[in-house]
């Protein structure tokens, strides 16, 4: 028995080793390095002195940092429902027996997922350009006034949200489709015999049974919304003003554009802690959910 245990233990560590090694070298070490940097005034070049907690003190009193954080949270909270509900509805629709051309629709909805943030930005800009964009052209054709998409903070945030949801809907839809296909057909048949309406079946059976998947989608969307960076860089560059400068972009600006790597590192440590707490709360709310089962 002990011998078998040893053999299994061997195999376990052997199988974990490659991922573990690469993860340690390219993730854990940089993580530690980042924490060390956060106590220095490193400028990306020759200066690097330990300055204790100064960076953290500065971060905690930096009103722009707070404002970027606040904007990030608002953005994440407002968008989260769309990120979860739209894929869910599409998945339900595209698993229904009544719907035709499912393969086509699923494929079409998935294609934007394949694009890089850069290309998503280019595509969305091309649609929503103020002067020569297609959307403003159509609005004018219908007799309206061109909309200054980049001018109003709310509109600019809307464009980013639209782009972000557009590029992720297919991904989450596929996760939902997989989960719906795993729900036993018997449950539905029984309900149908009992005369439960289609709408009731959705609310009373499908959605509750999909809770673990919804948790997964919620967690992934939350983290991705909080991390939103490349897309914003491609669409609004943080404008108008600083109204779409979210926290990761703020850190990047400080680090890369102003060479305040130490300060940027300190802010990123703060962010990591905040993100971890949010994820932890979501776990707790779900009481462990699928992850730890």
């Amino acid at each position: 028995m002990q011998k078998r245990k040893n053999r299994m233990s061997h195999a376990f560590w052997m199988l974990i080793f490659p991922s573990g090694l690469l993860f340690f070298v390219f993730f854990i070490i940089p993580l530690i390095l980042n924490i060390i940097l956060s106590f220095t005034n490193y400028d990306g070049w020759k200066t690097m002195n330990f300055i204790g907690l100064s960076n953290y003190q500065e971060a905690l009193t930096d009103s722009r940092f707070y404002s970027a954080l606040l904007k990030t949270f608002i953005y994440a909270i407002v968008n989260l429902p769309f990120k979860v509900i739209i894929p869910l509805l599409l998945a339900v629709l595209l698993t229904s027996d009544k719907v035709k051309f499912k393969t086509f629709s699923r494929t079409a909805i998935y294609i934007p997922v394949l694009l890089s943030s850069l290309v998503v930005g280019i595509t969305i800009n091309w649609m929503f350009s103020q002067e020569y964009g297609l959307i403003n052209f159509l609005i004018q054709q219908l007799g309206g006034q061109p909309v200054a998409w980049g001018r109003q903070p709310a509109l600019a945030t809307f464009i980013i949200s639209l782009a972000s949801t557009w590029a992720s809907t297919g991904f989450y839809m596929i996760i939902y489709i997989g989960a719906i296909n795993n729900i036993s057909h018997d449950v539905y048949e029984a309900a149908e015999i009992d005369g439960v309406s289609a709408w009731q079946r959705l609310l009373k059976i499908t959605i509750p049974l999909l809770m673990p998947t919804t948790f997964l989608v919620t967690l992934l969307s939350t983290v991705n919304l909080l991390k939103e960076y490349a897309l914003i860089q491609g669409v609004t560059q943080g404008g108008p003003g600083t109204s779409t400068t979210f926290v990761i972009q703020y850190i990047f600006d400080k680090g890369f554009n102003q060479s305040l790597y130490g300060y940027a590192a300190a802010m990123s440590v703060v962010i990591m802690i905040i993100f971890a707490v949010i994820a932890f709360i979501q776990f707790k709310v779900n009481e462990g959910g699928e992850f730890t089962k």
């Binding site: 974990i16 991922s19 573990g20 993860f23 070298v25 390219f26 993730f27 070490i29 940089p30 993580l31 390095l33 980042n34 940097l37 990306g44 992934l220 983290v223 909080l226 991390k227 960076y229 990761i248 850190i251 990047f252 680090g255 790597y261 940027a264 590192a265 802010m267 990123s268 962010i271 990591m272 993100f275 971890a276 994820a279 992850f291």
Partner: peptide, 24 residues
């Protein structure tokens, strides 16, 4: 072990870019 790997999704990897580069 799985918990440690999960860190990977929670932490915004972008903010580690510079330290990652140093290792590279």
């Amino acid at each position: 072990v799985f918990g440690v790997f999960l860190l990977g999704t929670l932490i915004p990897g972008e903010t580690l870019t510079i330290s990652q580069f140093s290792v590279i």
